Simulated assay, not measured.
Amino acid sequence: MEFTLHQIAAMLNGKIEGDGSLKVNRIDKIQEGKEGGISFLANEKYESFIYETAATAVIVSENFVSQKPVKANLIRVKNAYSGFTQLLESYAQLSKANKFGVEEPSYFDKSSSIGDNHYRGAFSYVGKNCNIGNNVQIHPHVYLGDNVKIGDNCIIHAGAKIYQNTQIGNHCEIKAGAVIGSDGFGFAPQEDGTFKAIPQLGNVVIEDHVSIGANTTIDCATMGSTIIKRGVKIDNLVQIAHNVIIGENSVIASQTGISGSTEIGKNCVIAGQVGIVGHIKIADKTTIGAKTGIPKNINISGQTKFGFLGMDIKDFLKSYSLFKKLPELQDRIKELEKKA
């Protein structure tokens, strides 16, 4: 696909500095830009590349001031990062091969229904009494159990498994290999030392505009629902246990594990490899750093937690600065003991 700089500037509500009639057909990193490509500059660490890049055009923020001559044509927008993201989204929509129809072999139970403009890939399975909306793509090897509901404009990628009674809203994307609604980890210890499985009778409810990463697992509730609220974005390889609630517009990075019946607030940011115990509440707008352990409630919104036991980040950094000095302090103590 090929676009003029005038077309791109109009799309991004930007202003051109240079020749707007020039055409681009590729999106490049600024340090790898070539003729016919368009790049962006949003981080000052990469500013040196704008004076070297061979890209035809570079998207910059409207307040960017060049320190040297720039060969590339510039498209100035309010925010370069947001503008480039908008360009990527538009490009992805245009370049995405929208599939329609049904590939065989596949199975669709006669008691289920599906809306207009749908796609069902080969070896997909749709169980009894499912209700699927318009413009839904169900890719190969997807499994939908009985009584699953999926709203409009959703994409279920290859190999995803969605267990019975799961409810998915509109404009959701479930990436490849994700498992939604499998049994929660519930076992009752017995007198003889063995464990007996506790039936998991609830479901999973996913609201609108949610993205679930590849190979992520969301367990069904023991009773009631595990709930992923509107606008949540979950990375690959995340484990969400039974009866967890994730608040609106929260984001969770890879390899995080959230134990049962925990409630995460709105607009939280949870980095990779975070571990959160069960039956606690995390306040709105909490940020949790990578590899942090959260053992108890976080009641005050807007805090940042970091460290093995989730200390306030300022306290953690102070403590860590002392930790690094322990060998030096030990030597000083030994010297003082010799003088005593």
Rank of each mutant, 00 (worst) to 15 (best):
residue 57 A to I: 06
residue 62 E to A: 07
residue 71 K to C: 05
residue 177 G to A: 05
residue 296 K to F: 04
residue 196 K to F: 14
residue 86 Q to D: 12
residue 299 N to L: 09
residue 231 G to H: 02
residue 287 T to Q: 15
residue 289 G to C: 07
residue 190 Q to T: 12
residue 87 L to N: 07
residue 59 I to T: 03
residue 139 H to A: 09
residue 312 D to F: 05
residue 80 A to G: 05
residue 189 P to F: 09
residue 84 F to C: 01
residue 215 N to H: 05
residue 180 I to S: 03
residue 121 G to D: 08
residue 247 G to Q: 06
residue 333 I to S: 09
residue 90 S to Q: 11
residue 60 V to S: 09
residue 250 S to A: 08
residue 106 S to E: 11
residue 215 N to S: 03
residue 68 K to H: 15
residue 33 G to V: 06
residue 296 K to D: 12
residue 263 E to R: 15
residue 260 G to P: 05
residue 83 G to T: 13
residue 227 I to N: 03
residue 271 A to G: 15
residue 301 S to M: 06
residue 41 L to Y: 07
residue 50 I to G: 10
residue 153 N to I: 02
residue 1 M to V: 04
residue 141 H to E: 10
residue 140 P to V: 14
residue 184 G to D: 04
residue 130 C to A: 01
residue 130 C to E: 01
residue 228 I to Y: 00
residue 223 M to A: 10
residue 6 H to C: 04
residue 178 A to P: 00
residue 271 A to I: 12
residue 29 K to P: 06
residue 100 F to A: 15
residue 159 G to W: 06
residue 12 L to E: 02
residue 234 I to R: 01
residue 130 C to L: 01
residue 244 V to E: 06
residue 330 Q to V: 15
residue 325 K to N: 13
residue 32 E to T: 12
residue 274 V to S: 00
residue 332 R to D: 13
residue 128 K to I: 04
residue 264 I to G: 00
residue 305 K to G: 09
residue 118 H to W: 12
residue 120 R to Q: 15
residue 35 E to F: 14
residue 308 F to Y: 14
residue 36 G to H: 08
residue 57 A to K: 01
residue 147 N to L: 03
residue 167 Q to Y: 09
residue 285 K to C: 10
residue 232 V to T: 07
residue 273 Q to A: 01
residue 240 I to M: 02
residue 169 G to I: 01
residue 125 Y to W: 13
residue 285 K to T: 10
residue 33 G to W: 02
residue 184 G to T: 03
residue 178 A to L: 00
residue 54 A to H: 11
residue 329 L to S: 11
residue 231 G to C: 10
residue 277 V to L: 02
residue 264 I to L: 04
residue 171 H to T: 14
residue 268 C to K: 01
residue 65 V to E: 14
residue 87 L to H: 08
residue 215 N to R: 02
residue 245 I to D: 01
residue 124 S to E: 08
residue 220 C to M: 09
residue 28 D to C: 12
residue 100 F to D: 11
residue 82 S to R: 14
residue 102 V to D: 08
residue 129 N to P: 05
residue 335 E to W: 07
residue 241 A to R: 00
residue 94 L to H: 09
residue 158 A to H: 12
residue 313 I to E: 11
residue 175 K to N: 15
residue 207 E to M: 08
residue 205 V to K: 13
residue 26 R to Q: 15
residue 137 Q to D: 12
residue 260 G to K: 03
residue 334 K to V: 04
residue 97 A to R: 15
residue 272 G to W: 08
residue 31 Q to P: 02
residue 278 G to V: 07
residue 140 P to S: 08
residue 18 G to E: 13
residue 196 K to N: 12
residue 327 P to Q: 14
residue 4 T to Q: 08
residue 258 I to N: 00
residue 25 N to W: 05
residue 157 H to V: 15
residue 33 G to Q: 06
residue 279 H to C: 15
residue 310 G to N: 09
residue 7 Q to V: 05
residue 36 G to P: 03
residue 76 R to F: 12
residue 31 Q to K: 07
residue 53 T to Q: 11
residue 161 K to H: 14
residue 28 D to P: 05
residue 214 A to I: 01
residue 160 A to V: 05
residue 183 D to E: 08
residue 204 V to E: 00
residue 135 N to I: 06
residue 189 P to G: 11
residue 27 I to C: 05
residue 265 G to A: 09
residue 109 D to S: 04
